[in-house]
Simulated assay, not measured.
Amino acid sequence: MKANQTKVKKKGRTVRAFKRDLSLWLFCVPGVVLTFIFSYIPMYGIQLAFRRYNAKAGILGSPWVGLYYFQRFFSSPYFGTTIKNTLILSLYGLLVSFPLPIILALMLNSLRFKKYRKVIQTVTYAPNFISTVVMCGMITLFLSPSIGVINQIMKSMGIDAVNFMAKKEYWRHIYVWTGVWQSTGWSSVIYFAALAGISPELHEAAKVDGATKFQLIRYIDLPSILPTATILLIMNCGSILSIGFEKAYLLQNSLNGSVSEIISTYVYKVGLVNNDMSYSTAIGLFNTVVNLVLLIIVNKASDKMSGNSLW
């Protein structure tokens, strides 16, 4: 009887809480509906990875081939190349682009003149609003061996022009550092928000005790944004094989293909260009599973080491 009464009371509290926050729940409805439509319904097509897809027969009418396309990818000469290129680009980008927004946010937060801080924030935010296509066009023009600004400066210094986009040893650096320039300012926004939540009394008390700016950053600011940084690092590790397709594809050419061919560009070529939907779905599913496993491992490790995790 007591167990039933407890369940009834809990149910009553849940219903009352739901009615009290009904307007807030209604705000969630559009997001839930859009997520269901664009993220869950498409999961129906995952079975393409296990079928030899025939457009006339449809998905369910296509013959079941099991793990054939996964085996085909694992034995393909592109498997090692695409995995290697994707991992190098992703890890290189993570090592460079993850700490820089934190450093920028900490430096600007400790800046004395707010007017200069706003100007710097605006200048660093601006590149984020440049579309990928425009960005790649700018990169190509700036690095052009004939009309590029970089090569014109090199020529004026008596240095021979270099076709940077044709040199595979430069391609990864170009890809990563232009991405850093474009995203650092915008990525620092969330750290500014975390720093804004720090009580000014902590800084004032530390200053009274004679703390320097570096000590304020080290013992107050940095520990305060560490949980936020940990969560973002976990999320970035969970998408380590999911590098964006557009930029890599637009900067790719036959001369740098050995370092610029990544999983997303390969999926595009075999899926849409070669019209091999089942094979491209299998590669995409493999990519997703690896990302999920990495996310779980990094999240668990972070939980044990720092106590911060997604769940």
Rank of each mutant, 00 (worst) to 15 (best):
V133D: 02
K300E: 14
S75R: 11
M305T: 15
A301C: 11
V162M: 04
N236L: 00
K9F: 09
A17D: 12
S131H: 06
R72W: 00
V96R: 01
N163W: 04
A282C: 10
T178L: 03
E261S: 01
S146Y: 13
L226I: 10
L104D: 08
G45C: 04
P223N: 08
I46P: 05
I41P: 08
N54K: 07
V176M: 08
V298E: 01
K11A: 13
I37G: 08
G45K: 07
S146F: 13
A194E: 03
R52H: 13
I150C: 12
K115S: 15
K114E: 10
F192N: 06
G66D: 08
V133C: 06
E201G: 09
G80P: 07
V189I: 15
P127T: 15
L233V: 01
L34Q: 01
N256W: 06
T122E: 08
A206S: 14
R51C: 08
A161R: 05
K168S: 15
N275S: 15
Y170K: 05
K304W: 08
V29C: 06
S187D: 12
M1F: 09
S188V: 04
I217K: 03
L94A: 04
I263V: 11
I198L: 07
D276L: 00
A206G: 12
T132F: 05
I139P: 07
C136R: 03
S39I: 09
A55S: 13
M1K: 09
L233A: 11
M135C: 10
S23L: 09
C136Q: 10
I37D: 05
S264R: 05
I220F: 12
V8H: 12
F98P: 05
L292Q: 01
S280K: 11
L250R: 03
L24A: 14
Q121G: 08
V119G: 05
T6Y: 06
Y44G: 02
A194K: 08
V29F: 12
I130V: 10
T230P: 10
Y116W: 14
R112C: 04
L87E: 04
E169I: 03
W25F: 14
T140K: 15
V96M: 01
L34G: 01
L141Y: 14
I103C: 03
R112P: 06
W64D: 05
L233N: 02
G31H: 03
L34R: 00
R13N: 14
V133H: 03
S110H: 03
V162T: 10
F70Y: 13
Q182K: 13
